[in-house]
Structure formats: structure tokens, C-alpha cells
Amino acid sequence: MEPLIHIENLYKSFGGLHVLNGFSLDLYDGENLVIVGRSGSGKSVLLKCIVRLLEPDSGALEVLGQPVPQLSQYEMDHLRTEVGFLFQGSALYDSMTVRENLEFPLRRHPEKMKGHDVGTLITSTLESVGLAHTVDMMPEELSGGMQRRIALARTLILRPRIILYDEPTSGLDPITAKEIIELMLRIQEEYHTAALIITHDMDCARVIANRMIILIDGKNYAEGAYAELSMSPDPRVRAFFK
């Protein structure tokens, strides 16, 4: 089976600081791949390289079979509609209502509407995150958990094949975090997406991961299922599960 994301020997450094040192991964259709690592280990840099918010120094990086660093801006913009990105801080447009936040990507990619009208798509997407009643509210009127759900709805409205989650439960209380995790699982079932999740939250990883990669020193240190890694005798791996 062809991977949706294929990364091989990816390198990225900032000045003298080597963040990614030959990192590799393959993400397959329908899979939830969780990457864990310490703060500053390059997890967010990896996600930003995948959507070309950052340019890698070297290595192979393909998304849906297309070489990301070589794509033109036009090709990249179209590829980005297939890859949703949930930011750590939600990154909702604070000058727009919830409706306008969801409309914004849709108006720029009308081919994604597939014959549906904007209003119907917005309502159905908001219903799938359980927040249809917030459609005319401003982001500042919503709680942190609600903002995260709306950000997820904005990602889903373009019906992406892959979703990249950057710390989806950080800054949330345990109950809201649990709700977000359940929502992520439900969305995967409903929209048949693959997910690449970066998290420090091992509860999140335990529930959601089909496979995990532990990122240490900018490269793959260990890889396997949650249960497998949690039993590892290696102290550097076990440190994540304490």
C-alpha cells in the first residue's frame, strides 16, 4: 500500500541548531500515527515541513505522492486542501464569526463544495463537532475546548484526506481533553481520514494511536504500538510512559 505521507532522512536546522537529523516516517490511509518527543525535539517543525510552512534542508518529503519541496505555489495550495492542520492554539481568525471562519477556506476552494451550498456544509460540519449553535458567535466568546472544536471543523470543511494535529489536547482540562480525543476518533470514522498527531499527552496517545514514533535527537528513536513501547526496557523510551 502506498503511504499518504512518505518522509525519508529529513534534515532541518536553524543556524547551528540541528532540529531534524534524518527523520523518517510513512503514514498510511486510515492510520493514526502519534509522534512523541520532548519539548524542542522538532515535532512541530516536522509538521510545518509537511505543509511547507518551513523548507527542509534535505531529505525526501512526499504527500499524496507529490514531492512537497518541489511543488509550485499553485500546486502546493491545492495539496494543502487535502491536508488539514489543527494548530496548538486553534488559530481561529478572531475578526470573523464562526460561520466566516468556516466559509473562508471554502470560498477560496469552491471545487471542494461538490455541488453543496455553503450554508449546508457549514451546518453539517458544525453538527459533526457538536457546535451548530455557535455559528454566529465570535471566537472570543468560546471556551478553549470549543475553539479547538471549531478549528477542527474549519479543517474538516475542505474534507481533507490527512489531518495533522499539533498538541490537540494541550491547555485543556482532562474532561475537555477526553472529549477532544473522542471527537478525533469519531471524525476519523465519519470522514475516513488519516492522522498524524503530535502530543505530550500519553492518555491521548494510548487511546488514539495505531502506531507511535518516539523522536529523540531529531531522529526516530523507537517505533511501535503503544502497548509495545510502554513495555520497552529502554529507559529513554520508558521515561515517556511514567
Binding site: 510545518k48 495550495d77 491536508v83 494548530f87 473562508f104 477556506p105
Partner: peptide
């Protein structure tokens, strides 16, 4: 101030990853 805060809160990056310039 407006664009600066949009940059800091990653709203500009969010626009970019949604395929908008």
C-alpha cells in the same frame, strides 16, 4: 498590531495551510 497579533497566534499560518495566500 493587527497583523502582528495574527502572526503570533498563528492565524497567518492557518490561512496559508488552508491554501489561501
Amino acid at each position: 498590531a493587527e497583523l502582528g497579533s495574527m502572526k503570533v497566534t498563528e492565524q497567518i499560518a492557518a490561512m496559508e495551510v488552508s491554501g489561501t495566500n
